[in-house]
Lab assay of single mutants.
Amino acid sequence: GPIITTQVTIPKDLAGSIIGKGGQRIKQIRHESGASIKIDEPLEGSEDRIITITGTQDQIQNAQYLLQNSVKQY
């Protein structure tokens, strides 16, 4: 399918649970989903961080599912 980009906003407090120790968790999510995932640095004074996910519809759905699971375990 076509490559698309979607953005998800997360509270910055949850960023740690998604990134994992030394970036292990986010690497695993990238690997498992096949999507490209970029977590922006939090904006000055903002409570949120923006996650940019790029890939096919399937890859993005996979990545979103894995991201949600990471947050739930936290």
Rank of each mutant, 00 (worst) to 15 (best):
G1N: 13
G1A: 03
G1Q: 01
G1L: 03
G1R: 01
P2Q: 15
P2A: 13
P2I: 15
I3C: 05
I3K: 06
I3Q: 04
I3S: 07
I3A: 14
I3H: 06
I3N: 12
I3L: 08
I4R: 01
I4F: 06
I4L: 02
T5F: 03
T5S: 10
T5D: 06
T5N: 15
T6Q: 12
T6C: 02
Q7N: 01
Q7S: 09
Q7F: 02
Q7V: 03
Q7A: 05
V8R: 04
V8W: 03
V8A: 02
T9S: 11
T9D: 08
T9C: 07
T9P: 08
T9M: 07
I10M: 09
I10G: 01
I10F: 08
P11W: 01
P11R: 08
P11T: 05
K12C: 05
K12E: 04
K12A: 10
K12M: 07
K12S: 11
D13S: 10
D13C: 10
D13W: 07
D13A: 06
D13N: 14
L14R: 12
L14N: 08
A15R: 02
A15T: 07
A15L: 09
G16V: 07
G16R: 11
G16K: 09
G16C: 08
G16N: 12
G16E: 13
G16L: 08
S17T: 05
S17R: 10
S17H: 11
S17K: 12
I18P: 10
I18M: 11
I18Y: 10
I18F: 08
I19L: 10
I19N: 08
I19H: 11
I19P: 11
I19V: 06
G20A: 14
G20I: 15
G20C: 11
G20W: 05
G20Q: 14
K21R: 13
K21L: 12
K21V: 09
K21N: 15
K21C: 05
K21T: 13
G22W: 11
G22Q: 13
G22R: 14
G22A: 07
G23K: 11
G23N: 13
G23I: 06
G23S: 12
G23H: 08
G23P: 06
G23E: 07
Q24K: 15
Q24S: 11
Q24R: 14
Q24T: 10
R25L: 11
R25H: 02
R25K: 10
R25G: 11
R25P: 14
I26A: 06
I26C: 13
I26V: 05
I26S: 06
I26L: 14
I26N: 04
K27T: 08
K27S: 08
Q28N: 15
Q28I: 08
Q28W: 12
I29Y: 04
I29S: 03
I29Q: 02
I29M: 15
I29W: 14
R30L: 12
R30I: 09
R30Y: 14
H31N: 11
H31T: 12
E32A: 05
E32G: 12
S33L: 02
S33K: 00
S33E: 01
S33V: 03
G34A: 05
G34L: 04
G34I: 00
A35I: 01
A35T: 04
A35R: 00
S36N: 02
S36R: 11
S36W: 09
S36E: 11
S36D: 08
I37R: 00
I37N: 00
I37S: 00
K38E: 12
K38D: 14
K38I: 08
K38G: 12
K38Y: 05
I39N: 04
I39V: 11
I39G: 02
I39A: 08
I39K: 02
I39H: 08
D40L: 08
D40T: 03
D40I: 04
D40Q: 14
D40E: 15
D40Y: 03
E41Y: 06
E41R: 07
E41H: 14
P42H: 15
P42G: 10
P42M: 07
P42W: 05
L43Y: 03
L43R: 07
L43K: 13
L43C: 12
E44S: 10
E44N: 15
E44V: 08
G45D: 12
S46C: 07
S46D: 14
S46M: 07
E47C: 04
E47P: 03
E47T: 07
E47Y: 07
E47R: 06
E47L: 07
D48Q: 10
D48F: 04
R49M: 11
R49S: 11
R49K: 09
R49N: 14
R49H: 11
I50Q: 14
I50K: 07
I50Y: 10
I50D: 04
I50T: 11
I51E: 01
T52Y: 07
T52P: 00
T52H: 13
T52F: 15
I53Y: 04
I53V: 08
I53S: 01
I53R: 00
T54Q: 04
T54W: 04
G55V: 00
T56Q: 08
T56P: 02
Q57I: 02
Q57V: 05
Q57W: 02
Q57H: 13
D58A: 09
D58H: 08
D58C: 09
Q59P: 00
Q59V: 10
I60R: 02
I60E: 02
I60C: 06
I60M: 03
Q61I: 03
N62F: 03
A63T: 04
A63Y: 02
A63M: 01
A63C: 06
A63N: 00
Y65K: 13
Y65A: 15
Y65Q: 14
Y65M: 11
Y65C: 09
L66A: 08
L66E: 09
L66N: 02
L66S: 05
L66T: 10
L66F: 07
L66W: 11
L66R: 08
L67G: 00
L67D: 00
L67K: 00
L67W: 03
L67F: 09
L67R: 00
L67N: 01
Q68Y: 03
Q68H: 04
Q68K: 08
N69W: 02
N69L: 07
N69M: 06
N69D: 13
N69Y: 03
S70D: 13
S70T: 09
S70W: 15
V71A: 11
K72P: 15
K72M: 08
Q73T: 06
Q73V: 12
Q73R: 10
Q73S: 14
Q73G: 15
Q73H: 09
Y74E: 15
Y74S: 15
Y74K: 02
Y74C: 14
